[in-house]
Amino acid sequence: MPTQVMSRADVVRVYGTLSGFEPARSDNPVSAGMPAGSVTDDTDQAVIVARLLVEGDGHVDPRRFAEELLSWEKEMKAKGSFDLLGPSTKAALDAVTRGVDVKEAGKYGTTNGAAMRVTPVGIAFDTADAERFLDRVVESCQVTHDTTVGIAGAAAVAAAVSTGIAGGSLDEVFEAAITVSAAGARRGHWTAGADISARIAWARELVADLDTAVALDRIDSLIGTSVASQESVPAAFAVLALTDGDPWRSALLAANLGGDSDTIAAIAGAIAGAVAGLSGLPGDAVRTLQEVNDLELESLTRQLLTYRTR
């Protein structure tokens, strides 16, 4: 949260190495005023997806999703927050408001909004039937990110989370992400962009055997940390490779990147958390998150897990 939209150089100048929760600085244009341990739009929107999956008996209704996202942004504005909808989501929902069909509104969405909030799909469904799994991913993308790039990014994250939930190793997580992302790139409206599946594999190789600081600089300069799916999704997988799947260290290293650091941390942390389980996170950090954000995720997670056994 505190380092989003900061440059990697500014993160190093201000924080040195971020090693725990920090409040946002008053000059951060997005996070200003947020206390240490606050979650951002990534977590809020993932919770919306989770609730809609439960409400829809395993399906995300695109019209309801659009309504919930618009309601969320209205609440954020009422609080004086600058942590609002991303560019693709905003454009799609503006189109829905103008009367554009929800099945057409997301045909230009290429940023990482779908990938950052797709974790509940990975919790709820396994990848045994790849096409059925992708159907669920697409439902969570359609209204805002119904493009080859948007779906490929979301598919990679959802497949990685699902594989971790099923007991898969980090190697198996990478394999699933690469395979399902490639299949996801055949869904949705075609849009030009680098292949996310290939970039995930490349990102892992790029940081192999590097010192952490050097690797973070390499991620920043070569992979990229912007809201583009082709940058932030592979960046999150590079972080996973660096930490060997440790969820707390993954979140911290992502925070030290700057750029769209909250999204990169949300993705890397979700995947690493799926592999390691709750015991992989420090108890005091979990308590801080619950207290600062009034989060009650355990019952929601249990409800999502019931779909895996049906």
Rank of each mutant, 00 (worst) to 15 (best):
L134H: 09
L70F: 09
D211M: 09
D171C: 01
S38H: 09
L53S: 09
V39W: 00
F125M: 07
E75L: 15
K103N: 14
V275S: 15
A9I: 11
A155M: 05
V173S: 03
P35W: 12
I196Y: 12
A156L: 02
A213G: 06
A91V: 04
S71I: 00
G269I: 08
V11D: 09
W190R: 15
A130C: 11
E231I: 05
I178L: 14
H59K: 08
S7D: 06
A158Y: 08
F237S: 10
S38M: 12
A276S: 05
G273K: 05
E68A: 14
T147Y: 01
I196D: 00
V60L: 11
A160C: 10
K90M: 15
R117M: 08
C141W: 04
L281A: 10
T163I: 00
R287D: 14
S169R: 10
L93A: 12
I200H: 12
T17R: 09
T119S: 15
G188K: 02
D146R: 03
G106F: 02
D44Q: 14
D10Y: 14
W202A: 07
A255V: 13
S81W: 01
D101P: 10
R98F: 00
A105L: 03
T119Y: 00
D171G: 14
T147M: 00
V239C: 11
A228I: 06
M34E: 15
A255S: 05
A194T: 00
D27V: 10
R117H: 03
D217H: 12
V149D: 05
D244V: 15
D101M: 15
D146M: 05
Q45I: 05
I48M: 09
G16A: 04
A152M: 10
L85F: 02
L210N: 11
T89V: 06
D126A: 15
D41K: 00
N112G: 06
F82N: 08
G153R: 11
G269M: 07
I271C: 08
V102G: 11
L93P: 02
P234N: 14
S31N: 14
T127A: 00
A32K: 13
A128L: 06
S19D: 14
V100S: 06
V207P: 02
D61I: 14
A50T: 05
A158C: 07
R308G: 13
G245M: 13
V30M: 14
T127Y: 04
R117W: 02
E291N: 11
E205M: 06
D195W: 07
A160R: 04
M6D: 13
A266Y: 13
E139P: 03
T17W: 00
W248L: 06
A194E: 05
A276N: 12
R132M: 08
A166V: 04
W202E: 02
